[in-house]
Design a protein around this nucleic acid. Structure first.
Lengths: 187, 187, 187, 187
DNA sequence: GATGAATGAGCCTTCATTCAT
DNA sequence: CATGAATGAAGGCTCATTCAT
């Protein structure tokens, strides 16, 4: 259906150029529909973006939860969550950048609120794992915030220095930051 | 002078609305000068942004370097660097936010390059300390990138949840991420 | 359609104020459409200008060529071409004025090239007749250039001094310049 | 003095870029004075241009008249005037273009009027020679207009096709147009 | 459901001009 | 005489949005 073609195209375009540099023209072109069609399915650019984030997160958290919902040790869970997050981040890098760096993009305030809530829910989801592993409530939420932005930074570095860094490093360093400290996170 | 008024206003406006949503009109208004005056002092919006970053970083790195240049153990150095960074980040949160986040979306390529170099130089500066502490070269650079964005995320959380989080937590979690792992970073 | 309204208005405005003093606002106003509509139909001011020249010339050369394509002596051909050119110039004086004068000052290089080619093609068309009449190749091209700008000047004079000059004089002087010299071109 | 430096620079700049593309900044730079100095000596850009044309024409017509004011045959006079005009045109090509192509440049109406008068005086000066050579009054004025725009066209062609055309051709073709007709103007 | 022509507010930038020194 | 910092009107262009079909 048109709606899905549009949403798929929008993810690609937003992810390639960021929210502001992505134009409705470009999205329509990429989706292979007329520009008016975008407005048939979504009331505005901002609300299209919101739909994309909301539905995308539903899918993503679903995928992660179902992957976790099997008997695993805490350590395995942490490793798995990290790996899945890194994979997702690298696949949808610009979108993830937007998702984790709120203010940077002057989206309409109400839409921003929805995106933030979505993000906070996701962070709580990560925090819960850390808390279950023994962290204090407060520390857990804050640490989750830190871990996810660190993931943001490591992936960013990886993408900006192709060839230099290896993908496996990202996972290793993140795991180290959580469990042993970065200074021990090496052979 | 006008130039300083403009730069001050630009930091506020850019960090409030992000690069793209900030208009030259808004900056001129905030600075209390005519729009033409912006172009008397800076050739373009992008180059104004570049000047703001370059001059801001010169001040910040200068302050950190002069604070470190004394005999200390590595551990003390790490603690100190973290504390200074957190202090600076919270003091100049607007500038810092721009520096760490607003570096991707459609600024002219050459300006982007200058800003990135500035940031990479700073990260290398942090990386050198980690490497001296025993990290591998590659891991050091990448880890520095991760630590600084984590700092970004923790400070952001702190600022977004006033009252909930305490400032000391930021330092403690960062130090833990570097030395013992976040899960051990608690009493 | 909008596109035609715009092109018509553009000819009027450009020939009234010249390329640089003509603003897109003015053209939109004259065409009775919104400014954005101009950009829906033409990618830029320069390309609008190019379209106007190209399409205008296509019409004009078409008309002249079809009038010539019959058996005539060279002398008749020269007389005919002069008369047709004068007629066209006076009928489309605005467009002609642009075509012969407004071709130098700071339009984008590629557009300028297209317009010049269009004009050179037309001049070659005139040159061929002179060459066939016995002129050297080189001289023919250059002379055609001279004759057409002279036509420009004579018609301009005629239009600027209504009442003083008679239309027939234009034809006579031009014909004289080509065949007997201006000094002999009189009863 | 400053005034002369400015006028000299203005001729170069206007002649290089045309009236509209020449900025007061550029003129000040070329003259080696501050921008404010321009306005100390001239009330506005348009009036500076007017001064430049008026004083330039005074010099030019002076030069031509003094060259003519010696015993010569009419034929020699015509040859001489043509040569001098071509020399001047090629030396100050853009300026000459402006001078002969009025409307093209949307200069302020009053200044335009002065420039036009200056030009009409010059054309009358050329016309007088043609009339003395036997042309009718009316034809003389119109023909002078035609000859000068033809000169405009030939020089333009020469400048646009470097290498192809030779400078001597311009003189020869112009002389032919006046005396024998272009078709006879060749060996 | 879908289209695409048309819109107009808003953006970055240029530049002739002013004025206090 | 001369300066140069400051101005603000105006220009070309982009783009989210509307609406008749």
């Amino acid at each position: 259906m048109s709606r899905d073609k549009i949403l798929d195209a929008a993810v690609r375009v937003f992810s390639r150029s960021g929210y502001h540099r992505s134009s409705m023209d470009e999205i329509a072109l990429e989706a292979g529909v007329a520009k008016g069609t975008l407005y048939y399915h979504f009331p505005s650019k901002a609300l299209m973006f919101q739909a994309l984030i909301t539905e995308g997160m539903r899918m993503i958290t679903g995928r992660i939860k179902s992957a976790i919902n099997q008997d695993r040790t805490l350590q395995e869970q942490i490793e798995l969550v990290i790996r899945l997050n890194v994979d997702l981040f690298l696949e949808y890098s610009e979108l993830a950048h937007i998702f984790f760096n709120e203010i940077s993009n002057g989206i309409e305030e109400d839409v921003l609120l929805v995106v933030r809530n979505e993000r906070d829910a996701y962070m709580q989801f990560i925090a819960d794992i850390l808390i279950e592993a023994g962290m204090a409530q407060e520390d857990g939420r804050m640490a989750a915030s830190g871990v996810l932005t660190m993931l943001n930074g490591l992936c960013g570095y990886y993408l900006r220095h192709p060839g230099e860094a290896k993908r496996e490093q990202i996972n290793r360093l993140l795991y180290a930051a959580v469990t042993t400290g970065l200074l021990q996170g090496q052979a």
